[in-house]
Design a protein around this nucleic acid. Structure first.
Length: 461
RNA sequence: CGGGGCAUAGCGCAGUCUGGUAGCGCAUCUGCUUUGGGAGCAGAGGGUCGCAAGUUCGAAUCUUGCUGCCCCGACCA
C-alpha cells in the first residue's frame, strides 16, 4: 500500500517565498509618526510592520509578522533541541487557578481581570505557571516521567501603567514560556542549565550577543535567575559586565544537552565573570576588575529564566511518586523569551540612518530584486528569471515590480532592511550584469544572472 | 500612580490667542514627460476639526464635562 503525502509542497512551505511588491501589503511611511520615540518603534512604523490599535496594543502587519514568525521558528528549534516540548495554553484563564497559588491577589492591577457572562472571574494571562502546574498535576504521577519541560508561544497581557517604545514595552506581547519539572534540586539545575544553553544559542542564531546576568526574581519567585541582556545604545537599562563576554561564542549545535557536565560547563563559562544589571549591580566587585576589562553599556532584556523550586508545586500540589513510593513535590523553573520585544531589540541592534539591517536569520526577505525599469523587456525578463530561480530554491524573495523610480526602490529596500539587494537596471544589464548590494556592508558587486543564481539561489536547493 | 502635553484629510502640521466659506506639505487617483538614491508639470478626490453639552445670529476657535493618545518619573517579559 502506498501512502501519499496529503499536502502539496507549496502548502507546507512556510513562509511563502513568493512576493511581488506590487501585490504585497507593505504600507511604508515616509514620515515618522510623532509618537515614536525610539528608533525601533519609528522604523517598525515606517516599514509597515506594526500598527498601534490602542495604548500598548499592536496589530502585526505582514512584514512584521514574517519577522516574528522567523524568530519563533528559531526559538522553537532551539527549545526542541534542548528537549522542551511544545503545547499551547489559552490566553484566557480562570481566576480560581490563580487563587490556588495566591497570586490572584498578589498580582495587582497589572493583571487584566474580566468577567464572563456567568459573572465568573476570568483573566487574560500575564504568564502561565499556574496553568502549566495544573496540567502537570492532572497527568503526571511518576518520577519516571521526569524531567519534563513544556513550552508554548502565546500572547500575554500585562496592563502596564505606562506602555511605551512600541512593542518593546507593550501591554499585549508574545512570549515563549517554558516550564520545567524535576524530581530534585539537582535535576532542576540541569533543566535550568539546558534552557540557559538554549537561550545562548537562540540569541546567537539571531545575530545577537546576549549576556546572561544575575537577576532579581521579582513576582515569579525563586532564588536562581538570569536575565539575558543584549547591548544596544538605546537599551532601557544600564548594565555592567566583563569585556570577555563580548568575545564568547555560544555553545555549538551538537552540544549534549543531556550531559550534566557539558551543561554545567556552559553555565560556568558564562557566569564566571562579572555581569549585572543596574538593579543587581555591585559597584565594588565591578571596580575590582581592571578598568580595561570593564564594560558599561545600555542593555535590553530579551530573556529571563527562573528556578523557583516548589513555589507553585507546593501550594498547587504537583507531586509525583518517587522511586521509594513516596510523594515528592516537584521542582520547577520557568523560562521566558519575548519574541515581539525581540523584533524591536533586533532593530535597536541593527539599523542605520536609512533603516533596518536585518540579520539573515530573521530577515522577512533575504533577497530583494529591484527592477529599475519596469516595462523594459530586458529588465523585466531578467527579474522574472531571477525571481523564478530564487523562488524555486525556496528563498524568501521580494520582487519590487512597482512602476516607480529607482530612488524609491533603493529607499524601500534599505528601510525594510533586505540583506541582499539585487538591482536590475538597463545599464548594467546591457553588459549582461546585475548589481548585488549587501545592506550591512554597503558592498556592491556586478555579477551575471548565472553568477547570481549560482552564488545565492543554488545554495538552498 | 504622580507631573506635563496633545487631539484639524492616510502621515506631518498651520489655523484657535482676537468666533464669520477648513488650509499647506507629503501620500493617493488621472494624464503627459521622466527612469541608478524617495522625479517634474497639469488636474482631481479625500475632513460630522476626538465626543457631548453650553454660550452665541454664527464655534475648529470661547466654557464645562468626558474619552483617547503621547511624553517625564516610580514599576515591569
Amino acid at each position: 500500500m502506498v501512502i501519499t503525502w496529503p499536502y502539496s509542497d507549496s502548502f507546507i512551505s512556510k513562509p511563502d517565498p513568493k512576493m511581488r511588491l506590487s501585490r504585497f501589503f507593505l504600507p511604508i511611511l515616509r514620515e515618522t509618526p510623532k509618537e515614536a520615540e525610539i528608533v525601533s518603534h519609528r522604523l517598525m512604523l515606517r516599514a509597515g510592520m506594526i500598527r498601534q490599535e490602542s495604548a500598548g496594543i499592536y496589530a502585526w502587519l505582514p512584514l512584521g509578522l514574517k519577522v516574528l514568525n522567523k524568530i519563533n521558528a528559531i526559538i522553537r528549534e532551539e527549545q526542541n533541541r534542548a528537549g522542551a516540548i511544545e503545547l499551547l495554553m489559552p490566553v484566557i484563564q480562570s481566576a480560581d487557578l490563580w487563587r490556588e497559588s495566591g497570586r490572584y491577589d498578589d498580582y495587582g492591577k497589572e493583571m487584566l481581570r474580566i468577567k464572563d457572562r456567568h459573572e465568573r472571574d476570568m483573566l487574560f494571562g500575564p504568564t502561565n505557571e499556574e496553568m502549566i502546574t495544573e496540567i502537570f498535576r492532572a497527568y503526571v504521577r511518576s518520577y519516571k516521567d521526569l524531567p519534563l519541560n513544556l513550552y508554548h508561544i502565546q500572547w500575554k497581557f500585562r496592563d502596564e501603567v505606562r506602555p511605551r517604545f512600541g512593542v518593546m514595552r507593550s501591554r499585549e506581547f508574545l512570549m515563549k514560556d517554558a516550564y520545567s519539572f524535576d524530581l530534585d534540586a539537582e535535576g532542576a539545575r540541569h533543566s535550568y542549565y539546558k534552557m540557559f544553553t538554549a537561550y545562548l544559542r537562540t540569541f546567537a542564531r539571531m545575530g545577537l550577543k546576549a549576556i546572561p546576568m544575575r537577576a532579581d526574581t521579582g513576582p515569579i519567585g525563586g532564588n536562581l535567575s538570569h536575565e539575558f541582556i543584549i547591548l544596544a545604545s538605546t537599551g532601557e537599562s544600564e548594565v555592567f559586565c566583563h569585556k570577555d563576554f563580548l568575545a564568547l561564542d555560544a555553545p555549538a549545535e551538537n552540544i549534549d544537552f543531556e550531559s550534566r557536565a557539558a551543561m554545567q560547563g556552559v553555565f560556568d563559562t558564562w557566569t564566571s565573570k562579572y555581569a549585572a544589571t543596574s538593579e543587581m549591580h555591585d559597584a565594588s566587585a565591578y571596580e575590582a576588575m581592571p578598568e580595561s576589562d570593564r564594560v558599561s553599556a545600555r542593555g535590553i532584556e530579551v530573556g529571563h529564566i527562573f528556578n523557583f523550586g516548589t513555589k507553585y508545586s507546593e501550594p498547587m500540589k504537583a507531586v509525583v511518586n518517587g522511586p521509594d513510593g513516596k510523594d515528592v513535590t516537584v521542582q520547577m523553573g520557568s523560562y521566558g523569551i519575548g519574541p515581539s520585544r525581540l523584533v524591536a531589540a533586533l532593530i535597536e541592534a541593527n539599523h542605520d540612518e536609512a533603516g533596518i539591517i536585518w540579520p539573515d536569520a530573521v530577515a522577512p526577505f533575504i533577497f530583494a530584486i529591484a527592477n529599475l525599469k519596469v516595462g523594459d523587456a530586458a529588465t523585466d525578463a531578467a527579474c522574472e528569471k531571477l525571481y523564478g530561480e530564487f523562488t524555486k530554491a525556496g528563498f524568501d524573495v521580494l520582487y519590487d515590480d512597482r512602476d516607480d523610480r529607482p530612488g524609491a526602490k533603493f529607499a524601500t529596500m534599505d528601510l525594510i532592511g533586505v540583506p541582499v539587494q539585487i538591482i536590475v537596471g538597463p545599464k548594467a544589464l546591457a553588459d549582461g550584469k546585475v548589481e548585488v548590494k549587501h545592506r550591512r556592508t554597503g558592498e556592491r558587486e556586478l555579477l551575471s544572472l548565472e553568477e547570481v543564481v549560482n552564488k545565492f539561489a543554488a545554495k538552498k536547493g
